[in-house]
Amino acid sequence: MSTLNKAAAPNDKNHGSNSAGRGPGRLLGGRRTEGSGKGSEPASGVEKRRNLGAGGFVLLAVGAFVFLFPFYYMFIGSLQTSPDTSVAGAFPNPANITGENYSNINNSINLLQGLVNSGIFTGGVIFFTVVFGLLVGYALAQMQFRGKGLVFGMMLLVQMIPFQLLLIPLYVMIVRDYGLADTYLGMILPFAINSTAVFVFRQYFMQLPSTLFEAARIDGASELRILWQIAIPLVKPAIVTAILLTFIGPWNEFLWPFLVTKDQSIQPLAVSLANYISNIAATASNPFGAILAGACVLAAPAVALFIFFQRQFISTNIGSSVKG
């Protein structure tokens, strides 16, 4: 054990300095630079190129407005007693503010239950992805075994399978054959292990020097213990990145949970809100207020999460998320 710790310590430093320069593996093709350059601007030679003209800045600002305005408008709209679609309505009007829309939508669809269901769906996918993804990612990066190339090739190919082709057979299998309609497992299954996350894990494990693992093996540590005590603590940033990447899928997924759930008490919020939009909204007194209130509740966790962890969500990390 003592040797094990000794072996880990110097390499920990090593890893730190490595990751700045080399990035998570060759396959990502140096995409790391954008992330590591954050905070401290690159050397002075770049100065001339970095100089963005006023026109470019205006362009960026207009872009940011176009991207953010709908979110602002979503929030404002969710607070309006009666929908004001005039230009003035885009500004908060104290006379027209209410929290009623939130309670209205909550009476039609149980927002909390929806959030919990979304959470279980997303959490399940993240759980399977992290547990099994770390195992296979570590095996692919630091273990020598027969069939490794095959597993790696499979992981790359799987990311190219278009979901629309799987739609019907998965529906037949999961809903009809296995009877998993209206279950969390039925929702989770097609997304259970995110191959992009597996790829991210492998890339990070590849960065760690293999001598570290050889040393631990010589000390008699089991592979599981090496993974748990040495490898995982060194790739914590990879885990955050993989969780963020994986989160987007199930939290925002509509089509699949829509197909497998009919029972509202198990539907993720995206599905129950969509059903509200297409079926019930027409009969409500202020349909848009209620829809926008629901939309805010659905959007808020994802937006908050990505603002909070924005450093982990950079081009480097998602560069490989080639999901069809």
Partner: peptide, 24 residues
């Protein structure tokens, strides 16, 4: 950072949520 985050906010938000505001 502000620009970068504001550009990917629609991407990380559920379609169903932003569809609501586009309808509006």
């Amino acid at each position: 950072t502000f620009f970068r985050v504001s550009y990917y906010v629609p991407y990380v938000t559920a379609s169903v949520a932003v569809v609501g505001v586009w309808l509006f």
